[in-house]
Design a protein around this nucleic acid. Structure first.
Lengths: 329, 329
DNA sequence: GTGAAAGCGCTAACAA
DNA sequence: TTGTTAGCGCTTTCAC
């Protein structure tokens, strides 16, 4: 059932029906409006979004590219973004890049061809060719969760440097830890590089070890186990939540107690970790805020969000640092 | 840059350009084809998917409604489905229903208005009004992960009854457990009801307790803790992965050892659980297969997948049942 | 305050 | 083998 059907049912023109549906741009007599609304109800009419998109040159769809929705931080972010989008009656197309720049680029192209109105990209390391494609398309684009220095683009991210500092300082100041290890891959200028930079600042000469791993928990596990076999480490800061969990397990498997012998601090948060055997202490981001600002940025008043937005982080106390070890058992 | 531009650049008609782009339906002379391809390359032309969708009456988009992508099973499923969709050059629109039938229905309407070609719904308890909307729209729809008996609709799901039976039998036969509790909300005819039904079959007279919880880990935690304070339970089967983790923690907090005093078995799987302090033993579904069949069902040859598809499950041994307790520490 | 008509970019039917 | 044209359903001039 089309708009023309409604118009003939209501005994008026398609233009008028369109005015009623979209509140203007021209006024409609109350009587006519009534008849149109009745006709719409009677015929159970819903506008065809495809035709509308063709005419308006606006699809009402936003594209989201994340490395992997199954990772807790990205999953939470994806859900928050979807909620923000849906509350505006828009639709969200999602794709997983698996940390692969080529896949990221493919997804961006596909989304752009589909006529998205906005693009949100969560990526480790700004992918230059993807950002060029996005810029050329003229579609509002915002990058989350990676480094902003590479090229001019709108970025919304947390203050990862401070996050790293907070993590280290907590271990040094509150728990008197003196031999810390950072687990992660602080290459380049991404999130982990920032966290490591903050870690160095916050730990001072307590920073003893850097375990340069890939992004997997597997690698974190084996490297931490190796380290603990030969060094008297008493504090671990791990670059991602999954790696922190693996590091914790490695510490236990090496015969250490957590948090008695070794304190562990993670980044981000995973609600599912709240019933882990040892709840991880971690420095978390305000995911909902990031999501809201990102959606705002791409769909509404772009001027209201500055190009480089850096958001605060906060320490979430768990059981892995030592603050609340008395809560267990 | 439009198709008409390409046509004039190549000195031919739009129809011919369209034929080249879509391989037919009519043949194009090699020389002409060459010129068209050159023009496309020169102008860097990409077809407008919106216009194409309006004309073809096919958008190349599939809708997916899940309760919550941040829950590990749904997240994994969403990623697998997205991968299957993307490999066909289609696009996936996702929405989270939060287990709310009204939200599910809203999402379905929005997707249908957007002109999706297929709809995949993951839901606890088939929502009748959503399924009516989907049916009326004529869009290929498939339901995953819930009960099939309510009304005629294509369903692809795992054999949850067998899953429950396997879980219980493992505890009884392999570990000699004699006093089992089931944690979950086996109301109605959904996934959990099936699992509980299988649990009863598999445990025989070892089935001693049913803790009727809501879907949250919180409730599982407190009810398990309450139960263990007064009963000599030696085996727990929990309806969801998150509840199993909470149940395990509750057992530890009640002074029990896992798996020595109490064995725990979960359902589904969470890769992130592989570095938990006690890796959960669980009965898992073949998520990739479910995803592939679902996408196949909605986008291709619907006849090839029967209306009610029930897929096998398998036991994944972890550390929480007792099989490999010697692997720890 | 309302109606007629053009046209978004593409595909498919028809004609040549 | 190629060209012409109608039209998908909607929005927006423009004329009345």
């Amino acid at each position: 059932v089309t708009l023309a059907d409604v118009a003939s049912e209501a005994g008026t023109s398609t233009a008028v029906v369109s005015y009623v549906l979209n509140d203007g741009p021209r006024p409609v007599a109350t009587a006519t409006r009534e008849r149109v609304l009745e006709a719409i109800a009677k015929l159970d009419y819903t506008p065809d979004r495809v035709a509308r998109a063709l005419r308006r040159r606006r699809t009402g769809m936003v594209g989201l590219i994340v490395p992997d929705v199954t990772l807790p931080f990205f999953g939470t972010l994806a859900r928050s973004i979807e909620a923000a989008i849906a509350s505006r009656e828009d639709l969200l197309i999602t794709s997983n890049s698996n940390f692969d720049p080529a896949a990221e680029e493919r997804a961006a192209r596909a989304f752009l061809d589909a006529g998205i109105d906005g693009l949100i990209i969560v990526s480790e390391g700004l992918n230059r060719s993807t950002s060029e494609i996005a810029a050329r398309s003229g579609v509002e684009t915002v990058w989350l969760h990676q480094q902003p220095e590479t090229m001019p683009a709108a970025v919304i991210r947390s203050d990862h440097v401070t996050a790293g500092r907070i993590a280290a300082e907590h271990l040094v100041r509150e728990h008197g830890r003196g031999s810390l290890a950072f687990v992660g891959s602080p290459m380049g200028r991404g999130t982990l590089a920032h966290r490591y930079q903050g870690f160095l600042t916050g730990s001072g000469n307590a920073a003893q070890h850097l375990l340069a791993t890939d992004l997997t928990p597997e690698d974190a596990y084996s490297q931490v186990q190796g380290l603990l076999a030969r060094e008297p480490v008493d504090g671990i800061v791990a670059g991602t939540y999954g790696q922190a969990a693996a590091a914790l397990r490695a510490a236990l498997d090496s015969g250490r107690s957590v948090p008695e012998d070794v304190s562990v601090v993670a980044f981000d948060n995973d609600v599912r970790g709240q019933y882990a055997q040892t709840v991880l202490t971690s420095v978390e981001q305000d995911v909902d805020l990031i999501a809201r600002l990102a959606v705002e940025r791409v769909l509404r008043a772009p001027e209201k969000v500055t190009e480089q937005t850096v958001l605060p982080v906060s320490l979430l106390i768990g059981e892995s640092c030592g603050c609340s070890s008395d809560l267990r058992r």
